[in-house]
Design a protein around this nucleic acid. Structure first.
Lengths: 269, 269
DNA sequence: CGTAATCGGTTCATATATTGAACCATTGTT
DNA sequence: AACAATGGTTCAATATATGAACCGATTACG
């Protein structure tokens, strides 16, 4: 592991719950030597990625991040292009809607909206989604670049007893996702959460992210599933358009087939 | 220089004018070896600080920056803490008000408000303010850390025929700024713009940014100058307070002296 | 067309920057 | 006053970064 990435890893230790971190605490969290950690922090501070509270000597995120974050959004307006559709999605479904973006082999959380409809709701508080355990991840594996599946298989951590633990089990899920145009995680990452997800595409013509609805498992019904899928289609088209892309015909066709089956299922029941 | 800081330096090569950079071009810009640059980019990509355009193979800023930027603002609400005062400043003066923050040797634009009073108004569309040509920059040189002046002298680009082109000329401006508590750029960056600026301080007790009013030069009168300076004082105190700091007695004293002189000037005229 | 020039990416011996145990200084606690 | 934290520093050992040369694929061009 390069020393640069070790330094960058320190930034991920900050959170809203833990906005300032002292040297000793950071050593424990990062499981690294004090001298090393200190030097890494010096580097980050010089670059404006962290700054030091002059009183407590604790470190916190620095001003450069705001600048770079805005530059990113100014040049690649992902958040702006997804916000309205995601808010609408949460609103229409009454559940938590969120969007993730693929970068390399990582799926990063972009934004999330919680509906006010229910007092219990799914909270999205992770920053990177495991590819093998989340609906968003299955979308990436199903519609994203080829190498992703092998990358995902390297760390098949089990989060719940439903988390797929073999490449074969994962492959089956991915096939199903590719076939239906929707990904599903029924308690595969968190046992109480039932998520549905649809792929999003950008100007390159390829998969670049996923839009998802995370519902509390106990209130997930076929009717809700139909509603969520229908709204996911709208949201995916909308976000893809805002990101300069278009949903490929193959995915549109998979959706159409899925929705027809879903409707049939409901009328017979 | 640590390898981590070399990697981080690559991020500063991106700008709105140059949002995507290929490997070869980046080597030239960073003046570094191709293999080294490539590995640095790999590290940054793994951390989500850059991502690669799948078609062109060019690199651009990554999604992690958006997350960290939001986290920074959530935990150190600079933008939030300056917004109201800046809006008020624009409103009261009828001109464009903006705030910048110092990070390392760069003065970054934080936010800007345009007054609706006039149909012609100053537009702030740059992200980093040159230290030697803007009122905000003079504030940084006058009240900021020591090394800044030498850093500024390294690139004395001329933007107008009034831009100071020698360290001596710049030094004189800085002295005047330190003495009066206000910085002025009368067409030194853009010929039609007359700006006044005041320093802002944070919890460290040191200079950390500037609040400015950019006025159209043709309507800049002594009366307007008095109004702007008076409102700048209010805004600087307000923002400094919101950022956990306080305006040092020396600066308050400089302001008091300046305002007295200004008033004298007006009554005699 | 063939060839020369670029491009992104890779290799491996060399050399340099990173590492961490032990250390110091300061502060707050008992 | 002794103790246990804290943040910060040193230096020999060594793990890591480096860059010239190389590769294969595009692209430019006479």
């Amino acid at each position: 592991m390069s020393s640069a990435s070790k330094a960058l890893d320190l930034l991920s230790l900050f959170s809203t719950a833990r906005p300032e971190i002292g040297l000793s605490q950071m050593c424990k969290l990062a499981k690294r030597d004090k001298a090393t950690t200190y030097r890494h922090l010096q580097v980050l501070e010089a670059a404006g990625f962290v700054e030091q509270n002059a009183n407590t000597k604790h470190y916190r995120l620095g001003p450069t991040l705001l600048q770079l974050g805005r530059m990113r959004e100014a040049t690649v307006p992902r958040e702006t292009g997804a916000r309205e559709a995601t808010r609408m999605l949460a609103d229409k479904t009454g559940e938590t809607a969120h969007v993730s973006v693929l970068s390399g082999a990582n799926l990063f959380a972009l934004l999330s909206f919680e509906s006010l409809k229910h007092s219990t709701r799914a909270i999205i508080d992770i920053t990177t989604f495991p590819l093998h355990a989340t609906a968003s991840g299955y979308c990436a594996l199903a519609f994203g670049p080829d190498g992703l599946f092998d990358a995902a298989c390297e760390t098949l951590n089990s989060y719940t007893d439903k988390t797929p633990s073999t490449p074969q089990a994962l492959q089956a899920i991915v096939e199903d996702t590719r076939h239906s145009g929707f990904a599903r995680s029924d308690g595969r990452f968190e046992s109480e959460i039932h998520s549905l997800s649809a792929p999003v595409f950008d100007q390159t013509g390829g998969f670049c992210g996923a839009v998802s609805v995370a519902s509390v498992a106990s209130r997930f019904t076929p009717a809700l599933e139909t509603l969520i899928k229908s709204e996911l289609i709208t949201a995916s088209r909308d976000i893809s358009r805002n990101w300069g892309g278009v949903v490929p015909a193959a995915v549109e066709h998979a959706w159409a087939t899925s929705m027809a089956q879903q409707q049939e299922l409901e009328t017979t029941s």
